[in-house]
Design a binder for these strands. Structure first.
Lengths: 346, 346
DNA sequence: GTGAAAGCGCTAACAA
DNA sequence: TTGTTAGCGCTTTCAC
């Protein structure tokens, strides 16, 4: 019995063949005599051999690992709210994206490395991590508009795929949603149920998702004879949603329908409306966006524009894999369609 | 200009020294002439050198990576609820643990690999992953009592640290909470605010956390002259909490205080109570457990027993690091104390 | 304080 | 179909 972990060499000796043959069996290369193959397999079992990943990576130049990185601004106050990582982990949006990525990766026996970057230093770490070959590529989710990470990765010639179109054009692949169509869906639903004094709590207006949802909403309304709609800008967080709804209500107490640009803010809006004595949906109808877990935990259950995030995340992972394998060389984009989910709030 | 990525060799040539010297500078080994050191550093900058992780791991026998694995039963119905990974990511409990781990790791420039295992096959993958040296050890969070993973890891001589004591003894380190003390805190608070007809929604009674929280609660009550307390068993999920509270209310309509073994179920319980026309805390006081994000999103805000999960998770990561580095060889356990957080529900 | 040289365990040409 | 051999890029004795 040898003390150190068994190596290819040990298995080869045990099976009475060469290292190369064992390697072929392990890696499922065809051209191997079935008889020899089973002899090798037995030797593997007997020795309890497990291929050393570092050694393999060194020669294949593949880490067989991808990074899932969330990149933020780094200008937010730390403290009570918890760390950036903790905040992101608590966000139902991130959960669905991560879940989608993992479900794509798992059947392929791959597991993502989780990275959170909210400063130049941590972003540099992400770049370094990939440059060292610790991961073959990155899936990046940005939390704010001018995130420099995508460009840094592109400049370093590293593989990456983004969730959502970057605010400034960067030559990398991304998946995204037809946000404007989602805004339209919300507008039409509110109109159809008879609302006439509409308003909206928007997302941050410096990111495409925020802009496009608003544009689609306004657009559909304008076509139906509603040229002006009061708006209040939010930041996609619960608190910002509550604040925005409060402002809206103060300035326009008679609104009977509101489109809120994501579910977390919509949940906050419902809370504010309820505390202001408004019944939902009777007095004010509320439509959210995302169909995240917040939509279900909201009372009443939220009517919302569903973003198929798991599918989007899976696609994102698939695109990255294609880039890594060289099956795809040019950046591409895949845009998904939103869908209205009608529940109780509108 | 060379096409391939720069290697130590390239930097050495550029700096006019040997590979060994460059390696020393990169790794911050002392015995290096300051002058040479800066020459090397310049050469590194000029070439844009980044050490290859696989090559380093091959010789150091360290992956400098740890796995964060969530191990579940695999007997739960897939489907509407989403995949195991998605469900865990949506759970505020997991979010805090992961956040704590990440915040410990980040200053050390380490990033966890996220793995979800809910079947024998996926558990075997976790073991294989570690045996290949892809990660130096595992942090494991089990979602059910008889999780075989800890034992499998221990048998394979792999480093691991658990979150919570395993149901059956396994020779591995773990961090845990003094759950019984938490139950006691809840009992005393409820009694102190004048509740006299108490009941409890427990966690699953086949896991230590479920048992101990109940035991502590009962114990404190028994000491104060309340020998019998109605209970309803839940499974730590929202739905199971709602079901348990419904049963409790049907059988004991006059309860005026309830201890619910985690916040997610407590949130569900509040919902059930509210729909049954009970005011919280006036008619029924509710105390939760964990102080997860559910405690804050609950209406009214939940009075709860706080589990310092971030600290626990950080400690878990620290213990693992000590094991990996060989600074600690014997399994150990660290038990944290819970703390009552008084909000509006009790 | 620095360099030469020996591997770490594996894959992939290339030969046989 | 199988074996031989040459590295992949790095750390680490061991001399000097």
């Amino acid at each position: 019995m040898i003390r150190r972990l068994p190596t290819l060499e040990d298995v080869a000796r045990e099976a009475g063949v060469s290292r190369a043959t064992v390697s072929r069996v392990i890696n499922g290369v065809r051209n191997v005599d079935p008889a020899i193959q089973s002899v090798v397999l037995e030797a593997v079992a007997r020795t309890g051999y497990a291929p050393n990943r570092a050694a393999r990576s060194l020669v294949t130049r593949r880490a067989e690992t991808i990074a899932l990185v969330v990149s933020g601004a780094g200008d937010e106050p730390e403290g009570e709210q918890g760390s950036f990582a903790a905040r992101m982990l608590a966000d139902p949006f991130f959960g669905r994206v991560a879940g989608g990525v993992i479900d794509f990766l798992r059947p392929r026996s791959m597991h993502p490395v989780l990275m959170f970057a909210d400063s130049e230093a941590t972003r540099a770490e992400v770049v370094a991590y990939l440059r060292q070959g610790s991961a073959d590529g990155a899936l990046v989710v940005s939390t704010h508009a001018e995130d420099p990470l995508p460009e840094q990765l592109a400049d370093a010639n590293l593989h990456c795929v983004l969730f959502a179109r970057p605010a400034r054009p960067v030559p990398v692949s991304y998946v995204d949603l037809a946000h404007a169509d989602g805004g339209r869906l919300a507008a039409e639903h509110l109109l159809a149920r008879g609302c006439r004094r509409l308003a909206t709590v928007t997302g941050p207006l410096d990111v495409p998702a925020g802009q496009d949802r608003l544009a689609g909403f306004r657009d559909a309304l304008a076509r139906r004879g509603h040229p002006y709609i009061p708006i209040a800008e939010g930041g996609f967080t619960y608190d910002s949603g509550a604040a925005a709804m409060t402002r809206l209500l103060a300035e326009h107490p008679h609104i009977d329908g509101v489109f809120v640009a994501n579910d977390l803010m919509a949940q906050a809006a419902c809370e504010v409306l309820r505390e202001a004595g408004r019944r939902i949906p009777d007095d004010v109808a509320v439509v959210g966006f995302d169909d995240s877990s917040a939509a279900l935990s909201c009372r009443p259950a939220l009517t919302t524009v569903r973003q198929p995030m798991e599918d989007m995340a899976g696609k994102m992972a698939q695109l990255l894999q294609e880039h890594v394998e060289g099956a795809r060389t040019e950046p591409t984009s895949v845009i998904f369609e939103p869908e209205l989910v009608v529940r109780d709030s509108a």
